[in-house]
Simulated scan of single mutants.
Amino acid sequence: MTATATLPDATFFIALNAGSGHDETDERRRVIESVLRNAGRLFSLTIIDQPDSIDAIAAQLAREAAAAGGVLVAAGGDGTINAVARQAIAHGCAFGVLPQGTFNYFGRTHGIPEDLAEAVHALLAAHMHPVQVGMVNERVFLVNASIGLYPKLLEERELDKKQFGRSRLVAALSALKTVLSPHRRLRLDLQIDGKPQRLRTATFFVGNNRLQMEQIGIAPLSAALEDGQLAAMAPRTKGKLGMLWLLLYGALGKMGSLDQADQLTTFSFKQMQVKVRTLSRRRRIKVATDGEVTLMNMPLTFSVMEEQLLLMKPINVPA
Results as ranks from 00 to 15, higher is better:
198 R>H: 12
199 L>D: 11
168 R>P: 03
143 V>P: 05
225 L>W: 01
155 E>Q: 15
217 G>V: 04
207 G>Y: 03
207 G>I: 14
217 G>H: 00
211 L>T: 12
181 S>H: 11
198 R>K: 14
180 L>V: 10
197 Q>R: 14
181 S>A: 15
138 E>Q: 10
187 R>V: 03
173 L>K: 07
152 K>C: 06
144 N>Y: 06
137 N>F: 09
194 G>D: 01
225 L>H: 08
222 S>Y: 04
191 Q>S: 10
138 E>L: 02
150 Y>G: 07
199 L>W: 01
197 Q>T: 02
169 L>G: 01
140 V>Y: 13
140 V>T: 15
223 A>Y: 10
144 N>S: 15
209 N>C: 14
166 R>N: 08
157 R>V: 05
211 L>Q: 09
133 V>D: 06
197 Q>H: 10
145 A>C: 15
137 N>P: 05
216 I>D: 03
172 A>I: 15
184 R>F: 14
148 G>W: 08
201 T>A: 03
166 R>P: 01
141 F>G: 02
137 N>Y: 08
169 L>D: 13
166 R>D: 04
191 Q>A: 02
159 L>W: 13
158 E>D: 13
156 E>L: 15
181 S>C: 10
198 R>A: 11
190 L>V: 01
152 K>I: 09
167 S>G: 06
157 R>S: 06
136 V>K: 02
181 S>G: 14
134 G>Y: 05
216 I>S: 06
137 N>I: 07
220 P>H: 12
206 V>E: 07
187 R>S: 05
187 R>D: 08
149 L>S: 10
178 T>N: 04
177 K>T: 13
169 L>I: 13
207 G>D: 07
201 T>H: 08
178 T>E: 04
217 G>R: 00
156 E>A: 15
210 R>W: 01
221 L>S: 07
199 L>H: 08
184 R>V: 15
224 A>F: 07
212 Q>A: 08
168 R>D: 00
189 D>L: 06
178 T>H: 02
166 R>C: 04
130 P>A: 09
145 A>I: 06
177 K>Y: 07
161 K>E: 12
211 L>D: 06
130 P>R: 10
146 S>L: 02
152 K>M: 11
162 K>G: 15
144 N>I: 08
160 D>G: 01
179 V>I: 15
178 T>V: 09
142 L>E: 03
157 R>P: 02
166 R>W: 11
166 R>I: 05
192 I>C: 00
178 T>S: 11
132 Q>P: 08
136 V>R: 02
174 S>H: 00
171 A>T: 12
156 E>Q: 14
219 A>Y: 02
191 Q>R: 01
182 P>T: 08
202 A>G: 12
190 L>Q: 00
171 A>I: 03
139 R>Y: 09
